[in-house]
């Protein structure tokens, strides 16, 4: 029963990092400035590395012959447990940075909780990732402030980006029953605490540049944790998984 809760939780962490990293890689060659290109790719690289750590652990627990690569490249959309937020298209730079910030704030709160996990493997992966994500959050929060408090045009775009993404944040402020069970066992981060920390972080940064904060989002018929995704994930996977599926076990 323990693994029935733990494996989906590891997939939530790993798949969210993987899909967010994949979205960031779409900016390669398109970023508005060289420094931003480097930053977007570096953050993506950190996330893909973290995803591998989580998926390796999930693969060991699954113990069905699949490794982390098989989980990343040979699962279908319905078997992915990532947050709906991270699969959303990049849009303009305001949408990209708003997504990054909302995710980073959740990610940091999760990892802070997970550093105290009674599972030493989880605590170790989290402690490593936490250092990296601290830099991610610092950067994305600065961009939200810069765009939100910048020109009329940048502010207009932020004012459009936030409500467009906000309904997906219900998954960041609320966890699932299985997470609550894992948290009670000392393994997972307490979803209620993560939700509070996330909201406090988001509210503070939005308030600092007078960006309006929408009312809390509520559940709707999709759920990343249950594998019920928006139409965007399938398209993302088609691109990400094409090569390993077309040429299984290719090496270079």
């Amino acid at each position: 029963m323990h693994n029935d809760d733990l494996i989906p939780y590891l997939l939530l962490l790993g798949d969210s990092a993987l899909i967010q990293g994949q979205r960031l890689c779409e900016w390669c060659g398109h970023a508005p400035a060289l420094e931003e290109e480097l930053a977007l790719m570096n953050v993506g690289l950190d996330l893909v590395g973290q995803a591998r750590n989580w998926l390796e652990y999930a693969a060991e627990l699954l113990d069905d012959g699949r490794d982390a690569d098989a989980l990343a490249f040979r699962r279908d959309e319905r078997a992915f447990h990532n947050l709906l937020l991270v699969e959303q298209p990049n849009g303009d730079f305001a949408v990209t940075m708003t997504k990054q910030f909302l995710y980073d704030a959740w990610h940091l709160a999760m990892l802070e909780g997970l550093c105290a996990s009674s599972d030493p493997r989880i605590a170790g992966i989290a402690a490593k990732a936490l250092k990296e994500v601290t830099y991610h959050l610092r950067r994305s929060a600065e961009w939200v402030q810069r765009l939100g408090g910048g020109t009329d045009e940048s502010r207009r775009r932020m004012l459009a980006a936030i409500p467009a993404l906000w309904r997906f944040t219900v998954e960041l402020s609320q966890g699932s029953e299985s997470e609550t069970r894992l948290a009670a066992a000392g393994i997972a981060a307490d979803p209620a605490q993560v939700g509070q920390a996330w909201l406090a972080q988001v509210s503070a940064v939005f308030a600092s540049v007078e960006l309006p904060q929408p009312t809390p989002a509520s559940h709707f018929y999709l759920s990343g944790r249950k594998g019920l995704h928006t139409e965007h994930l399938g398209l993302l996977l088609a691109e990400m998984q094409f090569l390993p599926r077309a040429y299984p076990d290719a090496t270079w």
């Binding site: 420094e35 931003e36 480097l38 570096n42 950190d46 830099y135 610092r138 950067r139």
Partner: peptide, 13 residues
């Protein structure tokens, strides 16, 4: 500081 992320993840510019 120009950017928190430089030529590799471990460096700032």
């Amino acid at each position: 500081l120009l950017s928190q992320f430089g030529s590799t993840a471990c460096k700032a510019l």
